[in-house]
């Protein structure tokens, strides 16, 4: 016993409480769910075969991936523009911008979803305003379709996209860009051939972060999709709480988890993960 104890650093004693809690109450049931995906209702790969056999299931996965890809493209490119502007302006202005960004980051997801409901509904503020101005004759359908879900999701994800980009742009050595200009490159050449490639790690981190968060997003699609846009997260909740089918839900969760872990692994190749997390909570 003493021989073992001498090899274990005493610091582990105060790591243990949290570690035990997370292993027992979090990792345990997650492994159990992975196990369920190949044993419930019967042992075998039946749940995974459903992906090929069931058109509706395949459609849900496809809808989810499509919405996540579009959300990621918009959030990261708009986020890039914001981060670029923030890095290249005076400190005062940058602080104002950061404040706006963080306030929106902190406003409850439920409050934001509720606001979109008020703005985008058939009699919402946007449609009413457009009609009074005579821009449209019939209300535009923003809700209960993918357009509404996309607006809500991009709005939620932009701050998450900006923060890793900001970290990456701030750590850049601006003399490299000066050197490029001195050697005769134009502004746009410098941007496309020097600046953009140098911020690539930030772009990859931000892309994967937004994609991972979008993949399991529940609140906004459920409310703004209004039952018409079914994504994996909402489908899982229906399977568990209404039809009580653990097997199918567990299979979808296993796929989602595998995707997330794979993306985290790729992300760790490009950037210290703690930098991304640290940046996103400050």
């Amino acid at each position: 016993m003493n021989a073992v104890a001498r090899h274990i650093h005493p610091g582990w004693a105060i790591v243990a409480p949290l570690l035990v809690l997370v292993v027992a109450l979090y990792l345990g049931p997650i492994l159990n769910i992975m196990w369920l995906s190949v044993t419930d209702p019967e042992p075998g790969l039946g749940n995974y075969r459903k992906l090929y056999e069931s058109d509706s299931l395949l459609r849900i996965v496809w809808t989810t991936l499509r919405i996540c890809v579009i959300t990621t493209i918009f959030s990261v490119s708009l986020g890039y523009s914001i981060a670029y502007a923030m890095v290249h302006c005076h400190l005062r202005q940058k602080n104002y911008m950061l404040t706006l960004l963080l306030v929106s980051f902190w406003i409850s997801i439920l409050v934001r979803t509720f606001s979109w409901l008020m703005l985008l509904g058939r009699n919402g503020l946007v449609n009413n305003t457009f009609e009074t101005l005579g821009l449209i004759s019939a209300p535009i359908a923003f809700m209960r379709n993918e357009l509404g879900v996309l607006i809500g999701m991009v709005h939620y994800m932009i701050p998450y996209a900006v923060l890793p980009l900001l970290v990456s742009m701030q750590s850049l050595d601006s003399r490299v860009m000066d050197a490029s200009r001195n050697l005769g490159a134009s502004g746009s050449q410098t941007f496309w051939r020097i600046y953009l490639p140098l911020t690539l790690p930030g772009i990859v981190a931000s892309t994967l972060l937004v994609f991972i968060l979008s993949l399991g997003f529940y609140v906004t699609p459920a409310v703004l999709g209004g039952g018409k846009v079914l994504m994996v997260a909402e489908y899982i909740s229906v399977q568990l709480l209404v039809t009580l089918k653990w097997g199918t839900a567990a299979m979808l969760a296993a796929l989602m988890l595998a995707g997330v872990l794979a993306m985290l692994w790729i992300m760790s190749r490009f950037m210290k993960l703690s930098a991304v997390f640290g940046g996103s909570t400050r």
Binding site: V22, L25, A253, L264
Partner: peptide
């Protein structure tokens, strides 16, 4: 390694965490 593992609950989709807690 332990640190990376302990950060997982923050990045694993909430819906999967919800399933796990519900299950247990």
């Amino acid at each position: 390694l332990v640190r990376a593992f302990l950060l997982l609950p923050l990045i694993i989709p909430q819906i999967i965490s919800a399933m796990a807690f519900y299950r247990l």
